[in-house]
Amino acid sequence: MHDVLDALEAEAIWALRETAAAFRKPVMLYSIGKDSGVMLHLAKKAFHPGPIPFPVMHIDTTWKFREMIIFRNQMVEEYDLDLIVSTNTEAVAQGVSPFTHGAQEYTRIMKTVALREGLDRHGFDAAIGGSRRDEERSRAKERIFSLRMPGHRWEPRRQRPELWRTVNTQLTEGQTMRTFPLSNWTELDVWRYVRREGLPVVPLYFAAERPTVVRSGSLIVVDDDRMQLEPGEVPQPRMVRFRSLGCYPLSAAVESDAASVDDLIAEMESSRESERAGRLIDGEGGASMEAKKVEGYF
């Protein structure tokens, strides 16, 4: 008898194999987070005993937590990955940072633009991402195979009907595909799978004493000396962890004592906040995820 995780795993493996088999040059987006970690493991399973047949690409804004980069490099070793790092170097040179440009504009420049450029530079026609439908309302409408128009635009009204296990993988000039194998997973599914399969995750997901400041009601961990402190602001040590990892100045921590995967799952089974509540970039404007997706964000 199969459980929910077995069924979700089989669906994800199907989507990964379909992407690898039907497209000319696929790539997997790797964000270092727990969902990306699950995807790597699923890719390993999907093509076993063969190798993972596509490269992975990390969109590095240069503002990730240091522990994330260390972890990424460990994963490259462990899974023998062909890693591509894509950074908007022009914007970095211009000094674009979360402090200078505001969360929304910073995200557009450092993530959306860097992603589009990375995909174009290598000519990838399909990109596999770890988004889940339970994350956010506009993502509930997302297909597992999501068509992007020239310029990587997402047009909700032009999405293709998805029936059975049959995918229309035909692309016209300039069109690309995004594949979301974890579409039907919930945050709790991801953690239960991490536990069941014994997968490594970035230690930032677990509670530890970290230097924090409070900004607009959010707990921000001061990860390096680039953090611009307000006058009189002194980082305080607090027991915190992250539910969602991004750029450190934009990722809100939560106070927690959960120091293991079991603790986390227990905490989550009683916690009722949605995961992206801690992402500052989603907060601006009622439909901001939808607006970002239209521009080509994941």
Binding site: D134, S138, A140, P156, R157, A287, E290
Partner: peptide, 27 residues
Amino acid sequence: DGLEAEREQGITIDVAYRHLLLPSGRR
């Protein structure tokens, strides 16, 4: 409700997918 256009018009345009947790543990 999912998309902005739908919230404005108060209708559902596209298929949305959601999870319901049955008391038995099924999904």
